[in-house]
Design a protein around this nucleic acid. Structure first.
Length: 558
RNA sequence: GCGCCUGUAGCUCAGCUGGACAGAGCAACGGCCUUCUAAGCCGUGGGUCGCGGGUUCGAAUCCUGCCGGGCGCGCCA
């Protein structure tokens, strides 16, 4: 069946047109009719404010128009009743017939129920994390990783063809600094620290010793006597690979897997930077000034022009980023999404301008800014680790609270708001921990289904369930919530907002727990038991679907 | 100084393309386990939506000015 909303939209549109033609107004194009879940109970399963929005168009008071439209709707077999309220809302109460069909659709649809073809099979690339391979990922990267991965899941669920990409910044001065830092530690471990002083602004973390130790194990002391240039080149290469490997491992442990690991070096290896610069020149957006090549970003929304190629011939980060984004679009993506830390927000207008200068609609690039994570331990700030002065690593957090809790917490808030992440709360196994609350609901469903099977109480085929058997407030509320899922998934996709799903699944779990506590399933009269078994099963399926989108396990026992 | 994000209940946050008496979880208080997992449920109290103007029939939501928090303003990445 169609989504509840789509069907309802058709019904309402018909009524609106009818009302309009009675006034002698013909509406070619109707404004889109929006449905939303009313905030309060008693206001129906869905409501629309279309009467208020169209009252001017039809020259009628909102409340009167609402009544008129409502009167035309009450005959629908899908609606139990229609009420008008407040300044002109129309509230819809879904009929048992409809409830029954929703249940049937969920059970028939398997894990795919709620998905859509909004993306139309278009190709979208989500680039995220993309941390320099100069050190371990910290919690901030963790949030970006969770959000990027979940957004990719959501887009795939809503009809996009998705690729996940990690951009490896392995070509800049930072890598030289990394090599020099490791080399210095290597000499230090050999007791010859004075021969290779630690670079100013070098990487001071303990992990540098680990990398240096790995070089000693593999290469012995041979670099103690090698020429510095040869040594530096080796250390840079070795360190970058070693750290990238550990980043890959941390991400895999976190449940994040990329389709493409794109090295900045390949950008230069394939001469993509110079050719991108040529494109800009041809299009008239690059000019020479004082020996450097500049980008005319002031032609767009940026506040000043930016250097692309320095007078010494070295390209800036911005130049390689333009080349990189050109390459992305050249690879045929219809849409590109970058997930960045919020500290890069000043860079957004520049990047948008860059994309535009390449002849691309700036809206083909979405840049999501992820705000900082505030790590807490029982409400007390825990952001710094004691020794290195580094931020707490992602691996530490995942090791302590597990990937499930970490992902759930990272996705819990809007991207652009700061996130308080309490480690103790994330580990707690009680109802104040939202992760367990949701997972427990799923485990409970599984438990009931197991017990039913053990007692030989088979659930009937979904088609045989009459919707009106669900008479209680808890059952109706749960069904109504289940029916919301396609709309919530679509909204999360449009807004690229994982937190919408976190909130939804938390609410759904709550509705299930309420239902479970208020009603027995097993041992009831056969018809009631069968219907409730199916309701429980459908609830479990939708919870599992959402958790899958979040990349969180849906345990069968807890 | 300029720019971006943000300020909603004791705490953490939803709601922000204007609409119904401002919602949820936690914390507090009071109840519910002979029966499908109490990692659960039910109930009670709690808010001048930072402050002042403005637009509107209607503002937490839009505009503007202050105040507070975060982050940026490199030929760094």
């Amino acid at each position: 069946m169609e989504g509840v909303e789509a069907t309802l939209r058709q019904i309402v549109e018909g009524a609106v047109r009818e009302a309009a033609s009675e006034k002698g107004i013909s509406l070619d194009e109707l404004p889109e009719i929006n449905f939303e879940k009313p905030k309060r109970e008693g206001q129906g399963d869905l409501s629309t404010n279309c009467a208020m929005q169209m009252s001017k168009l039809l020259g009628e008071k909102p409340a009167d128009l609402a009544k008129k439209i409502a009167a035309k709707l009450s005959a629908s077999p899908y609606l139990d009743r229609v009420e008008t309220a407040g300044p002109g809302f129309i509230n819809f109460f879904l009929s048992p017939k409809w409830m029954g069909e929703v249940l049937e659709a969920i059970l028939a649809g398997g894990g795919g129920w709620g998905s859509s073809n909004r993306g139309g099979g278009k190709r979208v690339q989500v680039e995220f994390v993309s941390a320099n391979p100069t050190g371990p990922l910290h919690v901030g990267h963790g949030r970006g990783a969770a959000v990027g991965d979940i957004i990719a899941n959501i887009l795939a669920f809503t009809g996009w063809k998705v690729e996940r990409e990690y951009y490896i910044n392995d070509a800049g001065l930072q890598m030289d600094l990394l090599g020099a830092s490791v080399r210095a530690r290597y000499f230090e471990l050999a007791g010859k620290g004075d021969q290779a002083p630690f670079p100013e602004d070098g990487y001071k973390g303990d992990y540098i010793y680990d990398v240096a130790e790995a070089v000693r194990e593999q290469e012995g002391d041979r670099f103690l006597s090698a020429p510095p240039e040869e040594g530096l080149a080796f250390f840079k290469d070795f360190s970058g690979k070693a750290i990238l490997d550990s980043i890959k491992k941390d991400l895999a442990d976190f449940g994040v897997n990329f389709d493409v690991w794109f090295s900045e070096k390949t950008l230069y290896g394939q001469n993509l930077v110079p050719s991108a610069m040529e494109t800009l020149k041809e299009r008239g957006y690059a000019f020479e000034h004082e020996g450097a090549l500049w980008f005319k970003s002031t032609d767009f929304t940026d506040e000043k022009d930016r250097v692309l190629i320095r007078a010494n011939g070295a390209p800036t980060y911005f130049a390689s980023d333009i080349a990189y984004h050109k390459n992305k679009f050249d690879r045929g993506f219809d849409r590109v999404i970058d997930v960045w830390g919020a500290d890069h927000h000043g860079y957004v207008p520049r990047m948008k301008a860059g994309v535009q200068s390449l002849g691309r609609d700036p809206d083909d690039l979405d840049i999501l800014l992820i705000q900082f994570v505030n790590l807490l331990r029982d409400g007390v700030q825990a952001a710094m680790s004691t020794r290195s002065g580094e931020f707490v690593t992602l691996a530490d957090v995942v090791g302590e609270v597990g990937a499930d809790a970490a992902r759930f917490f990272f996705a819990m808030r809007r991207n652009d708001s700061h996130l308080d992440f309490d480690l103790e709360l994330a580990k707690r196994t009680s109802n104040d921990n939202p992760v367990y609350y949701v997972q427990y609901a799923h485990a409970r469903v599984c438990s009931v289904l197991r017990e039913a099977e053990a007692r030989g109480a088979a659930a009937p085929p979904a088609q045989t369930v009459r919707g009106d058997i669900f008479a209680s407030a808890e059952e109706k509320k749960l069904l109504s919530r289940l029916a919301d899922f396609p709309r919530e998934a679509d909204k999360a996709s449009r807004e690229l907002a994982p937190h919408i799903l976190v909130k939804y699944v938390s609410d759904l779990a709550g509705d299930f727990h309420s239902f479970y506590n208020a009603h027995r399933i097993l041992g009831e009269a056969e018809e009631v038991m069968g219907a409730r078994l199916l309701l429980a099963k459908a609830s479990g399926m939708v919870i599992a679907s959402v958790l899958a989108l979040l990349g969180v396990k849906a345990p069968e026992r807890m």
